[in-house]
């Protein structure tokens, strides 16, 4: 499978990376090169093989339902949450107006 220019632009749009035609055109052969190369995986007989889920056998640990048990993963830290915000606004993050 190889991609064409409209596909490159569509992927860029899906990935939210602004890209003009020249940039997309430059990326096109690189992507096709890489995609062509990874396609050799198609040769591998994977019948009956499950996709990898956990590389090291381990089961999912669950957390107790306790609020702010660990300050590093708890709430009540608005100053920290907003410390790096490009546009903090009265305790909110400001973004360009969204019309729903």
């Amino acid at each position: 499978m190889s991609v064409d220019l409209p596909t490159v632009k569509k992927i860029a749009s899906l990935a939210r990376i602004a890209m003009d035609d020249a940039e997309a055109a430059a990326l096109l052969p690189e992507l096709n090169n890489i995609l062509g190369w990874v396609e050799q995986l198609g040769e591998v007989d994977v019948s009956g093989v499950e996709p990898m889920t956990a590389v090291i056998p381990n089961t999912l640990r669950l957390r107790d339902d306790v609020v702010d048990a660990d300050p590093l993963t708890g709430g009540g830290v608005r100053d920290k949450i907003l410390a790096n915000a490009p546009e903090p606004q009265h305790g909110f993050f400001g973004v360009p107006k969204v019309i729903e």
């Binding site: 590093l72 708890g74 709430g75 009540g76 830290v77 608005r78 949450i81 305790g91 909110f92």
Partner: peptide, 8 residues
């Protein structure tokens, strides 16, 4: 209050 119940 806004963003007071938000963890990292």
């Amino acid at each position: 209050e806004p963003n007071t119940q938000v963890s990292l």
